[in-house]
């Protein structure tokens, strides 16, 4: 990554700044919309991760780490899996089998199941996005290498 060169390209910076919010909005839409149409946590997480990778490609790794610090991305990596597994444990506590969403204490079984699925999709999305960001940050070469 030739960061110094990249920073001087105003067209790339402006286009990226315009595009990234829309890509991220679309990623959230895909995660939230997985119950109704194609898509879901995995695809949405990948799109969310790639929007941040786009930022890193255009603005450089140092600038990217200012936005998403190492601590934050590492924590998010495990947060998603914990959220998924945690919903499974909640189902156990509510008296059902592991990941039996319909036993969650909500008015109707259908609502409980739908919300449980919604929760795990968000968990998948968080982990996938964080891992993709981490993979890119750790694999790409820095200037000082």
């Amino acid at each position: 990554m030739k960061e110094r060169v990249a920073k001087d390209h105003i067209i790339r910076r402006v286009i990226a700044k315009i595009l990234i919010p829309f890509i991220q909005l679309y990623a959230l839409y895909v995660i939230a919309h997985g119950e109704l149409g194609p898509g879901g946590g995995f695809q949405g997480g990948v799109i969310l991760g790639s929007s941040i990778i786009l930022y890193v490609i255009v603005f450089g790794i140092e600038e990217g780490r200012k936005r998403i610090s190492q601590k934050v991305s590492d924590t998010l990596t495990s947060t998603g899996v914990l959220l998924y597994a945690g919903i499974g444990v909640l189902c156990l506590l509510a008296g059902g089998a592991y990941l039996e969403y319909s036993m969650l204490p909500l008015p109707t079984h259908k609502l409980a199941s739908g919300l449980g699925i919604y929760g795990i999709e968000i968990g998948v999305g968080i982990t996938v996005a964080a891992v993709m960001i981490t993979l890119f940050f750790e694999t790409a070469r820095r200037e000082d290498d």
């Binding site: 119950e35 079984h109 699925i117």
Partner: peptide
Amino acid sequence: ETGVENFVT
């Protein structure tokens, strides 16, 4: 059974 409309999900 699951409350979601997309079979795949």
